[in-house]
Every structure is written in structure tokens, then in C-alpha cells.
Design a protein around this nucleic acid. Structure first.
Lengths: 352, 352
DNA sequence: AATTAGCACTCTAATCAAGTGAGTGCTAAC
DNA sequence: GTTAGCACTCACTTGATTAGAGTGCTAATT
């Protein structure tokens, strides 16, 4: 059977209608809605074909049709048009986002949280944003040791991209200010500009040699710096609008909602949604759409996830995701994501 | 009408039973359950009295009774006994918590998050923990300025209690390393040991005088330090087990659940639950119980909130809260909170 | 005087039957 | 190839009936 022009038009109409109403759509509705000027009977025949081909399905024998995952896929890949017509709206929206992000928010954390909230409020879906992580090993810019207490050392680690981390190291020995000064110089002449991989055994033994009486401490500090550079430890996910899922009856049932919200709370589970998509890096420029089981997270089987990748500098990226029912307004979501992504990209480039 | 011994026993039985089953409890049940050896008819008369007095209520004319907020209040204040009998269980539990918290978790953030999770898993209620905040003005221990980029200054601020904050200051002028060194000395001889209130105009003008060519910068830095010491800006709330509310039918209805979960997501709303209880500071040692509308947060009207205050040092406290249905197992919750609170207190004292 | 047995009454929740309506598939006519 | 028409399906609504848990009240009992 062939998927001709007319079938596509009908499929498109079915999906469009279902996206709006959330109700199975019948042949009579299509017969009126479209400019095809066909009777409901004809539509019925075509719909039977489309069902056989796997694009739509009937929840029960005598009801209208709803799209299958395959149907959505076809829609997203081929049928859906971006709303190029409403250019001024897009412009205005972009402007809004721009204005919003230009507000003085110095802390990245707050910026990302606010962005998540903005998206959630505008789309009526749940949103999340991951903090940026580096894909190549991050390089150390400098470290700064200070004495906190007799036996506590504060270690401020600054990596490329001005990622700053504080670590407290508890010592076995007491230590004086002079030694701290010496260590500071030692570290900043030896390690600066190096990535995690480049801090090898040879270097370490050389350094412990230069500060023989503090061998253990030097090793501890290098460990801490190494962990901080690996930076998986404080990978964060900001979420907003979780309760938007209650706006969609198909996700509101207590057990379904519970699973979804739990996934949101366990930020680590969310990670699987956003990262680890092996093709994501290739398609960095594009918006990705995952429908139902394509998300590969069981609890999200009734949802769709749309993601975009933002980049704050070469190789350092984060992900923005929008989660909603499978019948989400993909056009609107893609548009919103593009706007936010581009603004976020710009925002960071400015600061470099 | 008087609330005699027998009425109390019956009330206690009604509440206990309702806590377990969640179903309205009838006179026949009580007649069997208790050691009073009274017929259901007698119980019925007493229950009618208790209803008149406002401790219990009938959801509809021909059903059993459930406790009112007033009834719960009486139960929590007077009737409830801590499970002193099961001492070994308490011991064991305390031990578990202890073991858990002693695991090497250097980051406070992670510690609190894990604690929230531990509590949520053990109680089957939703939990939250606020990061510690200072009630008196916090004092500055020292600051450390470093040059990040030509026009960016990293300011590491260490306050009493080893609270560490990073701020990036963007400059108008370029600045060299020598100046940074000079500023470091200037600040650390002038500001250390002062609280926010003590950084007054006189001091500031004196300092700008000493670094005349960088007046504006000095002022900026003082502003940043001031804000950081005020530290309301990064007050955090960690939550866990939000979806536990779905385990209780009376909270599972979509609109109720949505409101509660939304309150959880908007961490700022949660604050009202935990802080701002004017009497909290007085009763710092105790566990507080807020039933239904006592929480003064509209969305929590069907919930109870039990809180404890932990103290990491004199005047620096955080709050732990457990949120569940009004028919939560108060005894268990109070016990768990006491265990966690005491362990958390110890844990921080050790590090001082 | 306090307690209890007994009974009529109330109200919820579950079950069932009948009716409604949206939608289908199929056939025959256009 | 398209459409009108019709029988059929199935979810959903409505109303009626029933069962059961629990009550309040009265009269009998201790």
C-alpha cells in the first residue's frame, strides 16, 4: 500500500486534531475540517488503510483514531511545519526571552533555574536543564589554598571556563601559613593548564619530591583536584513545572503521575533522558524529539521528550529538555527551545 | 461536659485505629479493640459526646468517626506515647543513621540530600531539609581575591562556620596581579571578624581612601561581601520522597497532589512551612507538629508537618521537616526526627 | 443510674439494566 | 472511485435496586 498525498493529508489532519483535543478523532470530523471535500465514508476507508499501515490506532472498536508512535514520528519528521508564517510572533518571543536573560543574574545556577521556569510557564509542560559539563577533559586554570582551621585547608579550584569549586581538606598534621604559601606556589607552577589525564604518576612523584615532608598532603590535594576536574560529582539538573503533567488527563492517573514525578525528583534518572543519546553530539545543532518508548526510560513511556543542546564554550555543553504527553504541541515546543537555546548560547559567548 | 478517663481512652482508640486504617471507625470496632469491655451502644453514646466536644466528626451521617484537627492536637500533645518499650529498635535505628551519616561525605549539600532521602525511605512520607542559616549576622573570616581574566575578579568569601562562597566580579577597568595582592591585604586587615552590620560607612570611606585609585572596585567588593554574608540568596531546601504522598488516597486526587507537589517544587513556598514559626526559636530543642491548617500554607491543609531544628554551631540552624497526611504515624515520625537531629548535631560538632 | 439489646433509619458504594450517541465497517447505488 | 445508508459496536450516562456498615433512640436489664 502506498502512502499517497491524500493519505498524508488525512493523517496530518488526524494528528493535528488529536493534538488539540486529546480525543480520538472520527471520520466525520476530518471530512469537515479539511479542504479535501471528501465524505466521511471515503475518509473511513483511508483511515482503515492508515491503521493497517501502523500510523493510527483505535482505542476500541467503535471510536475514532489516535496516532501511534510511528504516526507521531512521521508527523514530527515530515509533516510538521515550523510556524514560519507567524514571524513577528517568533520575533517577539525571542525578544522576550532575550530581555529576560539579560536581567542581571550573575549566578549561573539561578540563570538556569529561571530559564527552566520561563520555559515551563510558556509551554505548559515540564522542563529541565542540565548544568554544562565538559566532554573533553577540563583544564586547570589555577588553585588557591588557604588555611581555614588548624587542620583544615580550603582548596579553591578554578578550571577553564571559569568553573569554580571549593573543597575542604581535613589534615592529619597541623600546618602553618608559610607552608600553605609554599604549596600554593608549588601547585601553581606545576599543574596549571593541565587536564586530568595529564596529571600522571611522573609529575606527582616529582612534586612529592619537592615537598617531601608533606608527601601525603600533596597527594590528597592532587586527588581532590582530579575529582573536581572530572566534575561529574556536581552535575546538576534544574527542573520546573513538574505539576504541569496534571494538565493532561492521560498522565494524571496517580500511578503514572507518581512514576513521572519520581523520575523528576531522582535527578540521576533524568540524566538518562537527556544525555547518553549517542547521536546527540553529532546533531548538536538540531532539536531532538523522542516519542514514547524512544526515550528508553520506562517511566516516560507515555511522554515525549524534546531536547536541545546549548554550548557555553567549545566542548562544554548542557541540555535543555521539555517533557509532556505524546500529544504535545511539538511545533510550539521546538520553536521555544530554539529561541531559548540561541539566547543561552549568546549569553555565554558574551562573557568569554 | 467533661473529658473523663473513659472518653480519653475511646478517643485514643478511635485515633489509633484511624491512623492505621484510614477508614472511619465505628462503635463496634472500638467495643472489640479496647480493654474497656463496653458494648457498642455505650461507645456510641460516648462518641456522640466526643463529637459534640469537637474531637471527632462523621464524614456523613451513617458512618464511623474520624478525628478533627482538634482531636489530632489532643492526641499529639497528651495521648501519644513515644515507643519507649521498643528500646532496642530505637537503638538500632539510631545506629543505622549514625553509620549512614558517618560515611565520608565531605560536601554538606550531599549530606543533607542523603539525609532527606534516608528519612523519606524510612518513613514513607515526603521530607525536606533546609540548609543551615545564621540568625545573627554572620562574621567574615577572610576573603581571597584572584584574577580570573583581564577584567574578572574571583572573590572567595569565607565566613564563620566555614561557610564558603564564590563570587565573580566583572570590572570596568583592567587590573594587574600586584593590585590584587594589595587589595587582598587591605581587605583582610580591615574586614576580618566583622559582621555585616559592622561594615559601616566610616570604615568604607577609610578603605576607599587607602586605595584611592580603585574606589569603585572597593565599594563593589564590599557590596558583594555584604550580600554573601546576608546569605539569604543561597538558602537551599533539599527534598525527597515527594511521590510518597501518592501512598495515601486522601492526598492522591490529582488537584490535591498537584498543589502539594507544586509547593515542593517551589522551594520558596516550602520555606513558609519550615521557617517563620515565631515560636520555633524558643522551642529549639523540641519537635514541632503542625496539623492541617496550623501549617498556615493553604496547599498543605490536608497535611501535617513535623519539624525539628538542627544546629551546626551556636546560632546557625537548619530545619528538617516531614510532610504526610494528617493521619501520619506521629510516633514513628517524631522518633525518626529525633534520631536524625541528634546525629546531625553531633556530626557537625565534630568538625568544629 | 448506668449499660445494653434491639430496631428503624440513613447514607454510601456496588451492581445492573436500559438508553444514548459517536463512530465504525460494509454494501449497494451513484 | 466516491458516497449514502444501515446495522452494529462500545463507552458512557442515568436511574433503580440492593447490601452493608453504622447510627440514634427507646426500652429492657443489671
Amino acid at each position: 500500500m502506498e502512502l499517497d498525498e491524500r493519505k498524508l493529508k488525512i493523517l496530518n489532519a488526524v494528528i493535528k486534531n488529536y493534538l488539540e483535543t486529546g480525543e480520538p478523532v472520527g471520520s466525520r470530523t476530518i471530512s469537515k475540517y479539511t479542504d479535501l471535500n471528501l465524505s466521511s465514508a471515503t475518509i473511513r476507508n483511508e483511515m482503515a488503510d492508515l491503521e493497517e499501515m501502523g500510523y493510527i490506532i483505535q482505542p476500541h472498536t467503535s471510536s475514532g483514531r489516535i496516532p501511534t508512535d510511528l504516526g507521531y514520528r512521521l508527523y514530527v519528521d515530515n509533516l510538521m511545519k515550523e510556524k514560519e508564517t507567524k514571524l513577528d510572533l517568533k520575533e517577539r518571543k525571542l525578544h522576550e526571552v532575550q530581555e529576560f536573560l539579560n536581567d542581571k543574574v550573575e549566578q549561573v545556577e539561578e540563570l538556569l533555574q529561571n530559564t527552566a521556569k520561563l520555559l515551563a510557564n510558556n509551554t505548559n509542560y515540564a522542563t529541565m536543564i542540565t548544568s554544562p559539563i565538559s566532554h573533553r577533559g577540563r583544564r586547570l586554570k589555577f588553585i588557591q589554598l588557604s588555611l581555614l582551621e588548624e587542620k583544615q585547608l580550603l582548596c579553591v579550584i578554578v578550571a577553564e571556563g571559569n568553573i569554580i569549586k571549593n573543597r575542604i581538606i581535613t589534615l592529619n598534621e597541623t600546618i602553618d601559613n608559610e607552608t600553605v604559601l609554599k604549596l600554593n606556589i608549588l601547585f601553581n607552577t606545576s599543574l596549571n593548564g593541565l587536564s586530568l589525564e595529564e596529571m600522571n604518576i611522573g609529575l606527582i612523584s616529582k612534586m612529592t619530591g619537592q615537598a617531601a615532608e608533606h608527601m601525603q598532603l600533596v597527594r590528597d590535594i592532587i586527588d581532590v583536584v582530579g575529582l573536581a576536574l572530572a566534575d561529574e560529582e556536581d552535575f546538576k539538573v534544574y527542573t520546573s513545572g513538574t505539576t504541569n503533567i496534571f494538565k493532561y488527563p492521560e498522565l494524571s492517573e496517580s500511578s503514572t503521575a507518581s512514576e513521572i514525578i519520581n523520575t523528576f525528583e531522582e535527578k540521576k534518572l533524568l540524566t538518562n533522558l537527556l544525555v547518553d543519546k549517542e547521536d546527540a553530539s553529532q546533531k548538536k545543532e538540531e532539536i531532538q524529539v523522542y516519542i514514547g518508548n524512544e526515550t528508553s526510560v520506562q517511566s516516560m513511556k507515555d511522554c515525549s521528550v524534546v531536547t536541545a543542546t546549548y554550548e557555553i564554550e567549545e566542548g562544554v555543553t548542557g541540555t535543555i529538555g521539555i517533557i509532556g504527553p505524546k500529544r504535545m504541541d511539538y511545533e510550539k515546543v521546538v520553536e521555544a527551545l530554539k529561541a531559548v537555546k540561541s539566547q543561552l548560547d549568546d549569553r555565554f559567548k558574551k562573557h568569554d
